[in-house]
Computed example of a mutant assay.
Amino acid sequence: MSLLDREVPGVVMTPDNIRSKTLPVAVNIGIAAGAFAVAAAIVLGADIGNWVLVVVLGAAFYLVGLNVVASRIEGKRAARNRAMKSLIYSACVLAILPLASVVWTLVSKGVARLDANFFNTSMNNIGARDPEGGAYHAIIGTLEQVGIATLMSVPLGVLGAIYLVEYGRGKFAGTVRFFVDVMTGIPSIVAGLFILSFWVLIVSPWFNDGQPRFSGFAAALALAVLMLPTIVRSTEEMLRLVPGPLREGSYALGVPQWKTILSVVLPTALPGIVTGIMLAVARAAGETAPVLLVAGGAAAINFDPFGGNQQSLSLFVYQQAGDASRYAPDRAWTAALTLVALVLILTIAAKLLARRNKLSR
């Protein structure tokens, strides 16, 4: 017997009284429109703020009005649920707005010099009144410095995380983890000063007739110092998320621990490891202070990371933003857009590669 066929004393069961009432969409929109209209009238009418205050005050009025109206139509419990959902959606919008603003600003201002000349020329022999000149040398420098830093930091970081998760026990592992945590918060300029005092001033004179020498490799060393703790921590967390029964099943089949790590643990955690590596790469690509201290920057193209000054995109943006030429800001915005696009392309490529490897297994 269905619920509609049951007889309840004194109550006639119909589809109308067994379904809870819901707040119509039109009423929800009307509450929002009224809330923001009242907020605009108060803020703009009294001249106490701008549109930012209107949005904040309107959101507060909307939550109050929604709670009152929903309580009368749906009940207090459903009204509280709607209020909480609205708060969650509002927090999501507030989190997305800064990102959307940054992207819009980069795209709108960065397209001014988005041409072939920008990607095919350097700033060599470019004067203050010359509208030409590009960031070819900076793009080459960024790719070489970040690439070398990645080659140095990724193996060390992944192996260090494997030790901490799979082998590390006792005080030594705790000490390593402590110093990794300390290095995570190290300022980038400290890493640059360390490489400056150690590599540039002490080591490089051995290979340069006793004279200190800036180089792209020195910048890569500084970037590797910054990337290493991020890779270790992110990889460690991903390895800890691998279920223990996977390891136990492999051990039960007689597979040694090192092979279990290579064939079971690492492939399972690979997507998360790649994400952590790309976060470290993004941080390294955007660093300016270490490159300025140990690579020096250059206006001409230098393909040799071991000899002479070398430029990077982040340093190029910094220099062009402070240049007195009226053409420099356009170069700075386009270089910033190029840097973001480069990191995005590398991230997507790494994600697709990790996904393909996972599917192929």
Rank of each mutant, 00 (worst) to 15 (best):
L293N: 13
N309L: 13
G296C: 10
T260I: 06
F303V: 13
L228Y: 06
D304F: 10
L228W: 06
G296M: 11
L293T: 09
A295L: 05
V281C: 10
S263C: 11
P267H: 02
S250N: 03
M238E: 13
T230Q: 15
S234H: 09
N302D: 01
A300I: 11
P245D: 05
P243G: 03
A298K: 07
E248C: 02
L292M: 15
A285P: 01
Y251E: 14
P243L: 03
E248F: 05
T230W: 03
V242R: 00
G286L: 01
T230G: 13
T260K: 11
S263R: 15
R240W: 09
R247I: 05
E236K: 13
T260H: 01
T235Q: 01
P256A: 13
S234N: 12
L266H: 02
G286A: 03
I273N: 04
V242Q: 03
S250T: 01
L262R: 15
A280W: 04
P245R: 00
M278W: 02
A298V: 04
G254T: 09
G307Q: 15
A269Q: 08
G308D: 07
Q311R: 04
E248G: 12
G296V: 07
I231H: 01
D304M: 02
P267V: 02
P243T: 12
T235Y: 00
V265N: 11
T275N: 15
V255P: 08
G249V: 12
V255L: 14
S312M: 05
G297H: 05
M278V: 05
V291A: 15
R283L: 14
A269E: 06
W258L: 12
T260D: 11
Q311I: 07
N309I: 06
L228G: 11
R233D: 04
T230R: 12
